[in-house]
Design a protein around this nucleic acid. Structure first.
Lengths: 337, 337
DNA sequence: TAAAAAAATGTAAACGATTTCATATTTTGT
DNA sequence: ACAAAATATGAAATCGTTTACATTTTTTTA
C-alpha cells in the first residue's frame, strides 16, 4: 500500500542507499542535483519511511511506556498529560497501562512494555509495593537495557533515576502555616498506613510541631484512607479533642470534612481551620475555598521527560534523585486562632 | 541482547522454521518429541519473539491510537481507562495523544499515529471541528487502510463506525424529571454554542417542554461555557425570571451555581431544584448531593473496544452507528415544587 | 599525464521473524 | 516389497530499512 524506499529509488534511477543517505542526511556527500531530485520525488510520492523497518535496524521504537495506578485519578491524568505532551515534542509517543494499583499488574505491564520494545519506561508503581516488590523492581531495572524512571515514588537503594515530591516538606509547610496562625491543637487526617506519601506528610507534621516545641499527641491523628468518607469520620473522632485546626492529607477528605461541619453547623474557618493537600480543581470551589498544598505536577512531568531524554542521549547508566517541592496555596479555609 | 529464534533453533538442533511452526501452532505436524524439546528450550532460554520483527511480516503492531482532547478531563480519562483496560485484555496497547481540543493537533496525531503503523485509531475529535474539518476527517478515514472509530462525536455522512451518547435524550430525561416534580419555570445553563452535545441537550429540553405543552422561553436560557464560573453568572441572570428549577448542562457549572446560592442564602432544593449532567465524582459530595444525568462512560469505552476488535477481525468496511443512553441519577438537589 | 586523493554512488549483508515450497523420511495399501 | 501417501523438517525468500564496505567517477597533485 505504502510507498517504499525502493520505489523512490526506482523513480529516481538511483539505489536505495542513496535515497536513504539523503533522507538521513548522512556525511556521505551526495551531489546536490541528485539530492534535489530525490527530495522532490520523496515529496511527490509522499514517501514516509516505514517505522517498523526502521525500528528493525535502529532497535528504537520511539515509544515510551507509562505505567500508573489509575489514569482516571486526576493527579495521574494531569501527570500523564504533561508527560505525553512533552514527549511528543521530542518525537516520542506514550503507551500507557493502568495497574489499578495492583502489584501484579505493575510487573505485568513492565514485562509487557519491555518485551514490546519500548525505548524507556516511566513507572509510578503500586502503593502496595513492599520492600520485596521494590527489590524485585530494582532487579528488573538493572537487567533491562533501557532507561527506567521511577516517578512519584521513593525507591530505596535505587539504581535508576527517581523523581518525587518532598511530601515531608509538604506536611511541614502545611503544619507550619497553621502554627503560624496561632493554632496549637492541630488534628490530622492521614492516608492509609502503608502509603509512603502519607507517612512522610506525618513526619513533616511532627517536624513542624517539634520546631514549635509542641509535643506530639497520637490521639490527634485520625487514620483515614484518602476517601471523602474519612473526613466525615475524622470529625467525630477529633471534635472531642478540641482541635482548632485540621490538616487533611488530601483534598478529598477535606471535602468530606467540610460536609460534616456544615451538617453540624461548625463554621470554617471561624470555628476550625482546615488545610488540605493536592489542590484538586474543586478545592477552589468549596465554601470557603480550601487552603491547600499544591503538588508540582507540571514540574514532575516535565522533569520525567527531560531525564528520560537525557538517559536516551548519553547511554551512561548514571542516575539521579530529583526531589521537587510542593507549595502552600492560601485560600479562605484557614485563619488566625 | 535478546534471545532470537535462531538461537533457540541452534540450541535444539533444528531449523528456525520448525521453531516458528511450533510456536505459532501451525497445521504442519511437527513430531511430539521435537515439539516438546523446542517448547522446553523456549522456556529455558526465556525466548520472547521480537514484536518488531513480527510486525515486519504481519503488518500488525497490536497498538491502537487514541486521540482525545484532554486526558486530564475526568470524562476522557475515565473513558481512556476503560478503553486501555479492555484493549489490553485482547492484547492491544494504547498510545494516546492530547489534542488540547485543537483541530490542527487532531489531524496531526491522526497522521502521526497512522504513519507509525497503529492497527486502528479511536478518535474523539476537537469540539471545534466544523463541517469542513469533518469532511476532511471523513476523507482521511476513507483513504486509510485501518479501522477508525469516531467516539463521543457525531460525524454526518460518516463512513466508519461511530459511538456516541444520545445527549438529546439526556436533555429530555433531565427536563422531564423536573417537569414530573411539578416545575414549570425551568432555567438552563448551557455549554458553549458551537458544542454539539450542548445543543443536543437543549433540543431535549425543548422536546420535554413541548410534550408538557409549556412554551419555550429563550430568556430562561443562560449560555455558559461548561466552567463553574458560568453557574455563578447564571444565577444572576436567571433569578429575576423566577425559575423554580435549573438544568445545568454539566456538573461543574452546577457546582458554581451551588456556591452562589449558598452565598445568597438560597436553599437547594427548597427554594430551587438543580439537576446537573455528567455525574462527576464530586456530585455526590455536594451539599446537597446533586441529582444529575449519568454518562454511560463504561459502556462507551467497552463498545469502542468491541467494535474495534470486530473491525480488526473481519476486514469488511461495514460500519455501524451506535447510540448509548444516559440515565437519571436522582439525589437530593431536586424536589417537588 | 598518470597516480593519488576525493567525491559520488552502489552492492549486499544485516535486523528477526513468517511462510512458501521443496525435500527427506516414514507409514500405508496392495 | 514397492509405489503412493502421509508425515516431518528445512532452505530460502520476504518484509523495508540502515550501513559497512566496495566500486566507479571525478578532481587534484606532482
Amino acid at each position: 500500500m505504502s510507498i517504499t524506499l525502493k520505489e523512490v529509488a526506482n523513480a529516481c534511477g538511483v539505489s536505495i542507499t542513496t535515497v536513504s543517505l539523503v533522507l538521513n542526511d548522512r556525511p556521505n556527500r551526495i551531489s546536490e542535483d541528485v539530492k534535489a531530485r530525490i527530495l522532490e520525488t520523496v515529496e511527490r510520492l509522499n514517501y514516509k519511511p516505514n517505522p517498523i523497518a526502521v525500528s528493525m535496524i535502529t532497535k528504537k521504537t520511539n515509544i515510551w511506556g507509562l505505567i500508573l495506578p489509575d489514569i482516571s485519578n486526576l493527579y495521574f491524568s494531569e501527570l500523564a498529560k504533561v508527560i505525553e505532551q512533552n514527549a511528543y515534542q521530542s518525537g516520542y509517543n506514550i503507551i500507557y497501562g493502568n495497574t489499578t494499583d495492583s502489584i501484579e499488574h505493575t510487573f505485568e505491564y513492565f514485562d509487557f512494555f519491555y518485551n514490546r520494545g519500548v525505548d524507556g519506561i516511566i513507572i509510578i508503581y503500586s502503593n502496595k509495593f513492599n520492600d520485596e516488590d521494590k527489590a524485585k523492581l530494582n532487579k528488573l531495572i538493572q537487567e533491562a537495557d533501557i532507561p527506567v524512571i521511577i516517578l512519584d515514588r521513593f525507591l530505596a537503594e535505587n539504581r535508576t533515576t527517581t523523581i518525587l515530591v518532598d511530601h515531608r516538606k509538604g506536611g511541614y509547610i502545611a503544619t507550619k502555616h497553621l502554627l503560624d496562625l496561632g493554632h496549637k491543637v492541630i488534628g490530622c487526617i492521614t492516608g492509609p498506613k502503608h502509603i509512603v506519601s502519607s507517612n512522610e506528610r506525618l513526619l513533616g507534621y511532627k517536624d513542624a510541631l517539634k520546631e514549635a516545641h509542641i509535643p506530639f499527641d497520637e490521639s490527634l491523628i485520625y487514620h483515614g484512607d484518602f476517601q471523602p468518607h474519612s473526613g466525615i469520620k475524622a470529625l467525630e473522632s477529633l471534635l472531642p479533642k478540641k482541635v482548632t485546626a485540621i490538616f487533611s492529607f488530601n483534598d478529598m477528605m477535606a471535602i468530606g470534612f467540610f460536609r460534616e461541619c456544615k451538617k453540624r453547623k461548625i463554621r470554617i474557618p471561624e470555628d476550625i481551620s482546615v488545610i488540605g493537600y493536592d489542590d484538586i480543581i474543586l478545592s477552589e470551589l468549596l465554601d470557603p475555598p480550601l487552603t491547600t498544598i499544591t503538588q508540582p505536577i507540571d514540574a514532575l512531568g516535565k522533569e520525567a521527560v527531560l531525564q528520560m531524554l537525557e538517559m536516551m542521549k548519553k547511554n551512561d547508566h548514571n542516575y539521579k534523585n530529583i526531589i521537587l517541592n510542593p507549595s502552600l496555596k492560601v485560600r479562605e479555609s484557614t485563619q488566625k486562632k
